[in-house]
Design a protein around this nucleic acid. Structure first.
Length: 307
DNA sequence: GCCCAGGCACCGA
DNA sequence: TCGGTGCATGGG
């Protein structure tokens, strides 16, 4: 399959792979020799994507593999029907339909962002295409260091997710709401989630199972504020988490996770502040980002992985 | 040992 | 409305 990329001159696959390699505890995708592997579910059928990119091309090359031990005559129809969903998911995950020119024009005039867009030119804002995954991930990441957050996330996925062995690796699908809702809280506690986080995650899972919360509340929201209100109404979701989800899942360009420790660290470094900036100072330093806030934040985060 | 982590809800004034 | 506090635990 070939998945089209908008504005390929502003597409940097190696930099995207570098971003995707940021944690050794990642298990929802793997990067190896320029290949990106990720398992997805298309109408309940697990499919493994093998994604490559040839420098200069206007498309990604994707092989879709049926990793289960299923006879080929059964697998073929599933693969044939997968083309459109695979394209939609990859486009959404890697922001293949993005036009970075407005952001780059803006960033060129900003002393903080200008060096970042020069160094990471073509880096797309890698998203989280699943709402349940993006919300639970923000809960997991609250108030603890990122390495520990990834450790708990890995336990969560390995214990409650669906897995398939293929090519010497174990590929996982993120746990479904019904499985999380039905899990014993003690099991989640063993993964070292705090009791509060367990409550938040299971409440969300249960609300999704019972139909009280659904992606439609975010997807069909008429504007940013409405979508944000639907998220903040959930226990455990505050301004930071809502903005993270609006940035990585819903892809609102103005999303700005103001309370983010990584953002504070970047602002401190690039504005040469003596200490961690106060919230009103963060507001002041980012106010002009406007509709570029999501990309500006993402490039700031990416720059912290340099070192 | 101490302080900070990709925060948030809850509490009392 | 607002500041203080507990959460859980790893890493610097």
């Amino acid at each position: 399959m070939r998945i089209p990329i908008a504005h390929p001159s502003h597409f940097n696959f190696p930099e995207i792979l570098r971003f995707l390699s940021r944690s050794t505890r990642e298990c929802l995708h793997y990067v190896e020799d320029g290949h990106l592997f990720k398992m997805i579910a298309v109408q309940e059928v697990p499919l493994l994507m093998d994604i490559r990119y040839k420098e200069g091309a206007a498309y990604l090359d994707v092989d879709v593999i049926k990793p289960d031990p299923v006879p080929m005559e059964w697998a073929a129809p599933a693969l044939a029907a997968a083309a459109a969903p695979v394209q939609a998911l990859l486009t959404r995950w890697l922001h293949l339909d993005a036009d970075l020119r407005p952001f780059y024009t803006f960033a060129a005039t900003d002393p903080v962002l200008a060096p970042l867009v020069r160094d990471y030119h073509g880096l797309r804002l890698v998203g989280v295409p699943d709402l349940f995954e993006s919300i639970t991930w923000t809960v997991m990441g609250q108030q603890i260091n990122l390495a520990f957050a990834y450790t708990t996330r890995k336990r969560f996925i390995e214990t409650l997710g669906y897995s398939v062995e293929h090519g010497g690796r174990t590929h996982y699908l993120y746990p479904k709401p019904a499985v999380v809702a039905a899990a014993q809280p003690e099991l989640l506690r063993e993964m070292q989630f705090s009791r509060g986080k367990i409550t938040y995650m299971q409440n969300l899972a249960q609300q999704i199972v019972q139909g009280q919360f659904s992606a439609a509340l975010v997807d069909d929201a008429p504007d940013f504020e409405t979508a944000k209100a639907a998220l903040v109404a959930l226990k455990g979701i505050g301004n930071w988490s809502a903005n993270y989800v609006l940035m990585k899942y819903a892809r609102y360009p103005q999303s700005l996770p103001l309370e983010d420790a990584g953002l504070h660290q970047a602002l401190r470094r690039y504005h040469h502040l003596p200490g961690k900036p106060a919230l009103d100072e963060v507001k002041r330093l980012t106010a002009h980002w406007g509709p570029h806030a999501a990309y500006a934040t993402f490039y700031c985060w990416h720059s912290l992985f340099e070192v």
